[in-house]
Each structure stands twice: as C-alpha cells, then as structure tokens.
Design a protein around this nucleic acid. Structure first.
Lengths: 137, 137
DNA sequence: TTATAATACTACTACAAAGTAGATAAATAC
DNA sequence: GTATTTATCTACTTTGTAGTAGTATTATAA
C-alpha cells in the first residue's frame, strides 16, 4: 500500500524542477540536491523525457526542466509516465473482473478509499503542491 | 498503490475459512477452491498459524480453521501477520521523518486518503465482509 | 575547432517477493 | 499397528525492482 521508489523519486524530482524553474538542472545537481542514486536517476529522467514531461538540453549549460506548465502536470500523469498507472479498474483482491454487479469480498469496503486516492491523484498538480509552505523534497 | 499478492491471498483464504466455518479445510481444498498456488499456500498458512490467526490440525479430517471469532479479526491484523503492516508513520515520499511540522511536498494532500485507508483496515473485520451478499473469493 | 559538460545507451549486479520441489512429521480412521 | 491424510520443513528457481558500471553521443562555451 505505497508508491514504488521510482514514483517517489519522480514526484520529488519534478517538484524540484518546478520549485526552481528559473533555470534548468543537470542530473548531477538533482542527484546531489535530492540525494538520489545518480545512475538510476539518469535512466528515470531519460524515460520522463521520452514521455514528454521533461525537456532535456545537452552540452554546457544544459540540463532538465519541465516540458509543461506545472498546473498541467497531475500526479496521475507522473504515475502513468513511470509505468505505475492508476489501475482504477484493478480489483483490490486481484480478480480480473470485479465491479458492483460481480464484486469481490472487499469491493464495497475498498470503494471509498479508492475513490479518495484517485481524486487526490487526478486533482493534484505540481503547481498545487507548493502553495502554502516550504516543504521538503 | 496496491496490496502484495501474499496479502491478497491471505484475505481471501481467511474469508473463505470464515464463510465455510462449519468445518476445517485442507490446504489442498483451499488451493483448488480459491485457485491459489499450492506450495506457496502451504508456506503462507504455516505463517498464519504461527501468528495465531489460524489453527491447524493434522491427520485425517484435519485441516485449517480460524483461530478467533471472525469479528475479532480485522484486516489490519491480517496485514500485520503477513508482514505488510499499516506503516501509518511511513511517509508517502519515503522520508524518514515527515509530520505536520516538517512535512514532505505531498504530506497534506496524502493525509485524507491515508486516513480513510487506515480507518477501513482497522474497522473492517472478516465478519463484516460477508453480511449483505455473496461475493467472490 | 576543441575541450567539456551534459544526456543517452547497453549491460551487468543485488535483493526481495513469488512460486516450485521433495522430503519429513504428526494425527487418525481403519 | 498401519496406511493414509494432513501439515511442516529445507532448499531451490523465477521474476521484477532497484541500483551500478562503463561507454557513446551530443551540444555548446571558449
């Protein structure tokens, strides 16, 4: 009942890119500032570039920055880019088909928390994360 | 953002033992009825016996049954026995220390869904799962 | 043009969860 | 007592995620 490490990393990196969006940042900087494994980060960022969430520029003064406005990037977009999509149709007990007409034993009990998680992931944007206070990334 | 396979299996098996609690059931029966891998199930059930959720009796007419009343077994007890505890203190972004006074970027947004999940897992008992209708296990 | 700072690629290792295989031990019906 | 049915133990294989290593490629500042 938690995010994958990769998802944690992606959210933190993209939040950082948004918070300090006046310039681009190299993988090395992200590695040091966020204390994430360098090599793993390069792979992940390459993936986020391919998925269109991040733009990369090479050479001196190059680096990474958000490819869209922060209010256009929802948490669910990040999960999807990482390969951990919402799976809103996925059954909590692992059944192939599970809905109100043919529910698993946990279907009804799981519905409210599930709806709340999905609402949070679809409504929360990068921009909305940093409004009130300085938070750690 | 999902349960481990082992947790899924455990919930299903314990629900089955409750629903058909008039008798005990061998691992082989559970394997066939619930379509779960036999050998994996034997390991898991041994663990649930050790943790005190299930009683096992050997020999002919032996098998497995619930060790407590179904209204005394909460979902969180199952998760804990399986080794996937609630981790209510665990930060959604993986930080060691994360609370209201020193929050991560997602702390506030995650709080409501988190509370709902925990309430569901602590309030739901095996007995409460099967009240209204026949559900699949 | 060239040194360099950066991304991008390919292949490997480490570890835990999931699943498999075979042998052993206990209880009971007969 | 014995055969059978059952749980239990030890060890192995598989698979996916996380993380590491080295190199190639690209862009740009000087």
């Amino acid at each position: 009942m938690h995010f994958s490490k990769t998802t944690e990393y992606a959210i933190r990196v993209l939040s950082y890119l948004h918070r300090y969006s006046s310039t681009s940042h190299s993988v090395n900087v992200l590695h040091q500032e966020l204390n994430l494994p360098y090599k793993y980060l390069t792979k992940m960022m390459t993936e986020l570039v391919k998925k269109g969430l991040v733009t990369a520029s090479r050479g001196r003064e190059g680096g990474l920055s958000l490819a869209k406005n922060a209010d256009e990037i929802h948490l669910c977009d990040i999960l999807e880019a990482i390969g951990e999509p919402l799976e809103s149709e996925r059954c909590i007990l692992g059944f192939e088909k599970c809905d109100a007409s043919n529910p698993c034993a946990l279907h009804d009990q799981w519905a409210p928390p599930k709806a709340m998680i999905e609402a949070m992931l679809t409504n929360t944007t990068l921009a909305s994360l940093l409004h009130d206070k300085e938070t750690k990334l």
